[in-house]
Nucleic acid binder design. Structure first.
Length: 603
RNA sequence: GCACCCGUAGUUCAAUGGAUAGAAUGACAGAUUCCGAUUCUGUUGGUUGUGGGUUCGAGUCCCGCCGGGUGCACCA
């Protein structure tokens, strides 16, 4: 597809030179796939060309069309409709490309260039707090990050997935304190609760104690604002944080214990989701790093110090504000450690890009981060990117941990898997499966539905999740695409079982003469895969892959319903269709893998 | 108040400035002697929030307004 478009563009430029003695700029020749309702494969938009040709769009289109038909062997026919020149490409061109694709073992996948090993692309995602379990918002983050990393890998980047765990701070102390006061020594083992859920339970517990304290104080006629500061549990939590920072043995031991519970919980969630990381960073180890960089900025005169000792960067010349980088007591704030961590990573890896997968409420933060690094004179400031995604809304509005309106990640995945089980049992097609095989299948389908549901949406757009309505398993859904793959596999098994057809893989379709419209559409769509992959990588958008994979499934199902594949009398037709089926399965599997979605052989 | 993001069928989502704005879902009507019906075909459903502008051409770009969200913390 890509090849034809490029070739056609050059041909059009040549035609313009021959016919009108003008040479259009490459960008002035707009070529797009022809819309379904017209005849053709590629369409040249003639308006811009007509201007430089000084003729009407209709006339220009016809003249260019005639020229192409005459001079280009690959062009079979042309027609002009309202200023659009539709070009029909010869079947032989498509078939030759299809043959190349089938023979190309690395189709749709570029081996990482070894020189990039020393300048990897870092993708930071997940980056959870260790005081509560993961919820639906995290799920969107994790799926996006994992998928983006896989997409970039497929385009030949050397990718390292990293996770920056926010394992310290007042929020952790709150859970710790509540557990000390009310936990009675409860552990994941004693309670049977997953570690992250157990710790999250005490985070909620803290909030209750806090509210009780505030209520008791306001009852004495003190303002709520004042009461929040005076609340004994809050003061105790802050005292605990001071002890932690002073490296108090007992506090640190408790912190380590409770964090270890959380990590065990997170790991099981990550494992179920099928995601991984090449390196973990912990904020407890990185939060001090930024101080040095702030000092460097002061020395260079690009940051400044206020009378109270706090350090700021002035970004008003960039259209932003002044931003605090270091508190007056010398302690660091959020951005301080991001400055330090980015520099650490650059020193460690010499990254060519560092991509942060973080919610869009931090758009401003990342602008500031980049510009502060620019002011420091680090030429790699421009290699920091932010894959910004919008929140997931519930019908009741935003998810709020404290109000208990969050959709828990583990629970959600469990529900999806159960739903997959229910539907699969109803269909009864896998009654011969061993129980562990069946369980694995339910997971594949349930998570396929969830992942597709989330990733098909443009990351920048807010999306609505309604827990009352279960996520689709039909229509524009993950299981629909999985089942198309399963159908392909079933057809292939049939082909394999027939002696005259089992060698379809060796069949050379280059000179196949009986191609049908539905076969042609499917074949063209399959060839488009590398182009789609590149676009998804350029735009950091798994949604583009999701849209593509749906298109392929639609085309295959349309083809399947119209034509018998195996078990027909004409062997050559069967061989061709089996080959088409084989390549469809291949592309579906490969593209779904980029979304973190597995495919079953049967379902 | 200032800044950024978003507004598309009843609903959930698509559409590198290009042709008659597409899918899914819902409702209704059909399709299997077959290689898998979690399928396919059709009907239904739109003043793309709104008013201007730029352009041969605007859902897309610019300006105003309306509605929703987020950020502007010595929180992270």
């Amino acid at each position: 597809m890509m090849l034809q478009a490029l070739a056609l563009r050059n041909s059009v430029i040549a035609a313009m030179q021959q016919l009108y003695h003008v040479k259009p700029e490459v960008n002035d020749v707009v070529i797009q796939p022809t819309r379904k309702e017209f005849e053709g494969d590629l369409t040249v938009v003639v308006f811009g060309l007509a201007k430089s040709a000084c003729k009407s769009p209709q006339e220009t289109g016809e003249e260019i069309g005639n020229y192409l038909s005459e001079h280009e062997a690959s062009v079979q026919a042309c027609n002009v409709v309202k200023g659009f020149l539709n070009v029909v490409i010869n079947n032989s061109v498509w078939l030759a490309q299809f043959n190349d694709m089938a023979d190309d073992k690395s189709f749709g996948y570029s081996e990482a260039d070894s020189s990039f090993v020393h300048a990897p692309v870092l993708v930071e995602y997940s980056s959870p707090n260790t005081n509560k379990p993961l919820h639906l918002g995290h799920v969107r983050n994790i799926l996006l990050g994992y998928s983006l990393a896989e997409i970039l890998k497929a385009t030949g980047s050397h990718v390292r997935k990293v996770n920056l765990v926010n394992d310290r701070g007042i929020h952790i102390c709150k859970s710790m304190l509540a557990w000390l006061k009310r936990g009675n020594g409860e552990t994941p083992e004693s309670s049977g609760l997953k570690g992250d859920h157990l710790v999250g339970k005490y985070y909620v517990e803290f909030d209750k104690m806090f509210k009780d304290d505030v209520a008791a104080i306001t009852a004495k006629g003190i303002s709520e604002e004042e009461a929040k500061k005076l609340a004994p549990v809050m003061q105790e939590a802050q005292e605990m944080l001071r002890k932690w920072e002073a490296n108090d043995a007992e506090t640190v031991a408790l912190w380590q214990l409770m964090n270890s519970w959380v990590y065990a919980g997170f790991n099981s969630t990550y494992n179920l989701m099928g995601v991984d990381f090449d390196k973990m960073y912990y904020e407890s180890q990185t939060y001090i790093l930024g101080k040095e960089i702030v000092k460097e900025g002061l020395d260079k005169g690009v940051f400044f110090k206020k009378d109270d000792g706090s350090v700021w960067v002035d970004l008003t010349d960039e259209g932003l504000d002044q931003k605090l980088l270091l508190r007056s007591d010398g302690t660091s704030v959020y951005i301080t450690q991001d400055l330090g961590t980015s520099k650490l990573r650059h020193t460690e890896t010499n990254f060519s890009r560092l991509i942060y997968v973080v919610g869009n409420e931090q758009d401003y933060h990342f602008k500031v981060l980049r510009l502060a690094l620019k002011k420091l004179g680090y030429d790699w400031w421009d290699n920091l990117h932010h894959l910004s995604y919008a929140m997931v809304d519930l019908p009741s509005g935003k998810m709020k941990s404290r109000e208990g309106t969050v959709v828990d990640a583990d629970e959600l995945m469990g529900d999806m898997i159960n739903e997959a089980k229910r539907i699969t049992k109803e269909l009864g097609k896998i009654d011969d499966f061993e129980s562990n095989e069946a369980e694995e299948l339910y997971t594949t389908i349930g998570l396929g539905a969830l992942k597709y549901y989330i990733l098909k949406v443009d990351p920048e757009k807010r999306m609505l999740f309604n827990p009352e309505e279960s996520i689709d398993f039909n229509g524009h859904s993950g299981p629909f695409i999985q089942s198309t793959y399963v159908r392909c596999r079933s057809v292939i098994r049939k082909g394999d079982s027939l002696p005259s057809l089992k060698n379809y893989a060796d069949y050379d379709p280059s000179f196949y003469s009986a191609i049908e419209p539905k076969e042609r559409d499917l074949l063209k769509a399959l060839l488009k895969y590398p182009e789609v992959l590149n676009e998804a990588a350029d735009r950091y958008s798994p949604a583009i892959i999701a849209g593509y994979v749906y298109e392929i499934a639609k085309y295959y199902n349309g083809f399947y319903h119209e034509h018998a594949v195996a078990d027909i009398e004409n062997v050559e037709v069967s061989l061709f269709r089996l080959k088409l089926t084989e390549q469809t399965a291949r592309v579906l599997k490969m593209a779904l893998a980029l979304l973190g979605i597995n495919v079953p052989e049967r379902m």
